[in-house]
Lab assay of single mutants.
Amino acid sequence: MTEYKLVVVGAGGVGKSALTIQLIQNHFVDEYDPTIEDSYRKQVVIDGETCLLDILDTAGQEEYSAMRDQYMRTGEGFLCVFAINNTKSFEDIHHYREQIKRVKDSEDVPMVLVGNKCDLPSRTVDTKQAQDLARSYGIPFIETSAKTRQGVDDAFYTLVREIRKHKEKMSKDGKKKKKKSKTKCVIM
């Protein structure tokens, strides 16, 4: 069974824990209790493949930012979460993405942009803004509501699919490099 290491990042209060708990335990946590770091595991079937999701729910508070490099190193894919009623959390996505790329030393890291709290009427981040940002990053965008469960499975499952595509691409690139290195030079 394939294991996928997913990391949920975003500013404090955007609903990272609520999304994760909704996926794992099928219930909505409405009281806000700032996370330092929590880890969850769940076995699911995605596109006919049974897999184990190892999900790291991270601290959004700035005082825990020193811990970010460590979990970013171990993560295979990242859910970059903002709240649709919090423009600052949307603007912060850029910083999370840049930090992930720096730590992973790669421009090509599996990510999904997630606009959470889409059940709320007080939207300050337009869907088109988020779609445009995701398009500019070359990553999928999904709106979710941890409260109603809308888009929750889709967000995590899409990230797994992005990781699969990335692994497939990397193995193809690896095979191309191996083929090239088999060419021999004969000096007579």
Rank of each mutant, 00 (worst) to 15 (best):
E3N: 03
E3F: 06
Y4Q: 10
G10Y: 00
A11G: 05
G12I: 02
G15H: 00
K16P: 00
K16M: 04
S17Y: 00
A18Q: 06
A18M: 06
A18W: 05
A18I: 03
I21H: 15
I21V: 13
I24H: 14
Q25S: 07
N26R: 06
H27I: 05
H27S: 10
F28H: 10
F28R: 07
V29T: 09
D30E: 08
D30T: 06
D33C: 09
D33V: 10
T35C: 05
E37W: 05
D38A: 06
S39Y: 04
K42N: 07
K42L: 08
K42I: 06
V44F: 06
V44S: 09
I46N: 08
I46R: 03
D47A: 05
D47S: 04
G48L: 02
E49M: 02
L53V: 12
L53Q: 06
D57K: 02
D57V: 15
D57F: 15
T58Q: 09
T58L: 08
A59V: 08
A59M: 07
A59P: 12
S65Y: 05
S65M: 06
A66F: 04
M67F: 07
M67A: 13
R68Q: 13
R68N: 15
R68G: 11
Y71I: 14
M72K: 05
R73S: 12
G75Q: 04
E76Q: 10
E76A: 13
E76I: 15
L79G: 00
V81A: 04
V81G: 01
I84K: 09
I84E: 15
I84V: 14
E91F: 03
E91W: 09
D92W: 03
D92G: 05
H95C: 07
R97E: 08
K101H: 03
V103R: 03
K104P: 01
D105F: 01
S106V: 08
E107D: 12
V109R: 01
P110I: 01
P110T: 02
V112W: 00
L113D: 00
L113H: 00
V114Y: 00
V114F: 01
G115V: 10
K117N: 11
L120M: 11
S122C: 09
S122Q: 05
T124A: 13
T127Q: 11
T127D: 10
T127N: 11
T127F: 14
K128Y: 11
K128F: 11
A130G: 11
D132W: 03
D132P: 01
L133M: 13
L133F: 14
S136D: 04
Y137V: 07
G138W: 01
I139G: 02
A146I: 02
K147W: 13
Q150L: 11
D153V: 14
D154P: 04
Y157N: 12
Y157P: 04
T158W: 03
L159H: 00
V160E: 01
E162N: 03
E162L: 06
I163M: 07
K167M: 02
E168G: 05
M170Q: 09
K172F: 10
G174V: 12
K176R: 14
K178S: 14
C185Y: 08
V186I: 02
I187S: 15
